[in-house]
């Protein structure tokens, strides 16, 4: 696969920002009203530094996806705020969503790449569209840039001419990474990126994501229930259970000496233990 280089590389290097690149402060997300109301996320504090790989671990219903959606501006918090490079960019009080001038900095890829790609758009078109939106390039140049991004993800020009249905799950997920990279984001949030793809394709995707982080200084938040993946890719981890962050710390320390009973249960549940 082609090396991941571009002129935008410098832009991605963590610069002189003091404090975290991305911060969620006291984030609470409440769904429903009155007696039906429940907190999907309760007073969560999360920080991500430039170039850092952070994990959010938990089971379904733990609030990890809701928290991530809030961090990228897809879900308005009921309380608390999201800060990017020290600036408040999104909060419960925000009348509109996260401003466009900030949104490009955080991009997200999802569990099922098939449902996040337009089935009637050729693969290169799906990426070129994002390039046009974010880089404001004319059509022909957007196409060249789209193919460059796809090639760097190991998708050939030939595959780029196909529709998403002709690609394997692993290929589709690499397409969605290429699309997410179109605005040269500073943070990539990957929500269970490997759970819908075959094991032999998982390693390819994980190698790519690891290189994006290590070589381009892209900060990555991995959301997963898979502690093996989190151990391999992240240096810090948050463990979530029913809306609360119950444990956080350096990944290795948390996995070797879990302090919370729920973290221990998760570790003991890994098949093969």
């Amino acid at each position: 696969m082609a090396a991941l280089t571009s002129e935008a590389e410098e832009k991605l290097q963590p610069d002189a920002i003091t404090g975290p690149l991305l911060e969620g402060k006291d984030i609470t997300v409440t769904f429903g009203r009155g007696a039906e109301a429940f907190d999907a996320v309760r007073a969560a504090n999360v920080t991500v530094d430039g170039g850092e790989a952070v994990g959010i671990v938990g089971e379904s219903g733990s609030g990890k996806t809701t928290l991530a959606r809030t961090l990228v501006g897809l879900q308005r918090p009921s309380a608390g705020e999201v800060r990017l490079e020290g600036q408040k960019v999104f909060s419960a009080a925000a009348e509109q969503g996260m401003p466009r001038s900030e949104r490009w900095k955080t991009q997200m890829i999802f569990q099922d790449p098939y449902s996040s790609l337009n089935p009637r758009m050729r693969v290169w078109q799906a990426v070129a569209e994002a390039v046009q939106v974010w880089q404001e390039l004319p059509g022909a140049e957007a196409r060249v840039e789209a193919l460059r991004l796809l090639n760097s993800m190991g998708i050939s020009d030939d595959q780029a001419r196909q529709f998403p249905k002709s690609l394997s799950g692993g290929q589709r997920q690499r397409v969605s990474v290429a699309r997410a990279l179109a605005p040269n984001p500073k943070v990539l949030i990957a929500d269970e990126p490997t759970s819908s793809i075959d094991q032999s394709a998982q390693a390819q995707l994980l190698n790519l994501l690891r290189r994006l982080q290590a070589e381009r200084g892209l900060a990555i938040i991995f959301i997963s229930h898979d502690l093996g993946l989190v151990r391999y890719l992240t240096s810090r981890v948050y463990v979530m259970q029913t809306g609360d962050i119950v444990e956080t710390g350096k990944t290795q320390a948390v996995l070797e000496r879990p302090q919370h009973a729920y973290t221990r249960l998760l570790i003991d549940s890994i098949p093969g233990r």
Binding site: S168, G170, Q171, D198, Q199, S200, A201, Q202, A203, Q204, L206, N207, R210, A214, D226, G228, L229, R231, Y232, L233, I270, G272
Partner: peptide, 26 residues
């Protein structure tokens, strides 16, 4: 063998996984 060595739970952080090249024959 490839299924075993490409597994993430045995990998060393900071090193590439031994991925199986290409895609499964459909």
């Amino acid at each position: 063998r490839a299924l075993r060595v490409s597994r993430v739970d045995r990998a060393v952080p900071g090193q590439d996984l031994e991925a199986i090249p290409g895609d499964a024959a459909s």
